[in-house]
Simulated assay, not measured.
Amino acid sequence: MTQDQQKQAAARAAIDFIEDGWVVGVGTGSTANYFIDALAEIKQRIDGAVASSEASAARLKAHGIRVFELTAVGEMPIYVDGADEINGQWQMIKGGGAALTREKIVAQCCKQFVCIADASKQVRVLGQFPLPVEVIPMARSLVGRELVKLGGHPAWREGVVTDNGNWILDVHGLTIAEPIKLETAINQIPGVVTNGLFALRPANVLLLGTPDGVVRSNNTFVM
């Protein structure tokens, strides 16, 4: 299978986790788009979805799937999203689509996080993919200097404004041996909204599209 076929296969496999009457947390990005398209085929079975970005909300609505505001629902049973990188502890780097803050918020409200990804996203150590950090615009330079102190090489993603009206710094050159420690440290920098490490809230299940099909793995590190 090609990379896109692997993404699509993983996304379709996630449909097996969806039960009747659920409100589904939905991620953002190319793999999440495949999941939205597959979800449309069973839209009569679900109550609706909560989207992690304006782009995902628009795609859901285009399929006729009801989109709820997060404030209108309580804890949800499931969040389905892709990853830019995922390690052996199901910790991830996310935010290539600049939706990391809302992705992290919606994921935190869900009992189960099902990560859907193609085989290229699985890594031993996080950091080859630049780590996105969402920042308040006035704090861009301050945050950049602090990220250099942490060993990174931040680059402003010029022309990109998040759904929250903020900017993105992509941090290159990191080898993230302790993801929880780094996620916590970056989030303590004044002006940081959040960063793209999903280590404090890793995935519960990984559906990995491979050339030979979809491989399911359950995370024994988190319940």
Rank of each mutant, 00 (worst) to 15 (best):
T101V: 04
T101F: 12
T101N: 08
R102T: 12
E103G: 07
E103M: 06
Q108V: 03
C110I: 09
K111W: 11
K111F: 12
K111G: 10
F113A: 05
V114E: 12
V114F: 12
C115Q: 03
C115D: 05
A117M: 09
S120E: 12
S120M: 06
V123E: 13
R124M: 15
V125S: 09
G127M: 14
F129A: 06
F129R: 02
P130A: 13
P130I: 05
L131R: 02
V135G: 07
V135I: 14
P137E: 06
R140Y: 11
R140W: 11
S141N: 12
L142E: 13
V143H: 01
G144T: 01
G144E: 05
V148I: 14
L150Y: 10
L150I: 08
G152S: 09
G152T: 09
G152V: 08
G152K: 01
H153W: 13
H153Q: 13
H153V: 09
P154F: 11
P154I: 06
A155E: 14
W156V: 11
W156M: 10
R157S: 09
R157C: 08
G159F: 13
G159I: 06
G159R: 08
V160F: 09
N164Y: 02
N166Y: 02
N166T: 05
V171I: 14
V171L: 15
V171Y: 08
H172R: 00
G173T: 06
L174Y: 09
L174S: 11
T175R: 09
T175D: 09
I176T: 06
A177S: 15
I180E: 15
L182C: 13
L182F: 12
L182T: 06
L182S: 12
E183V: 04
E183I: 03
A185L: 07
A185V: 03
I186N: 00
Q188V: 03
I189G: 14
P190E: 15
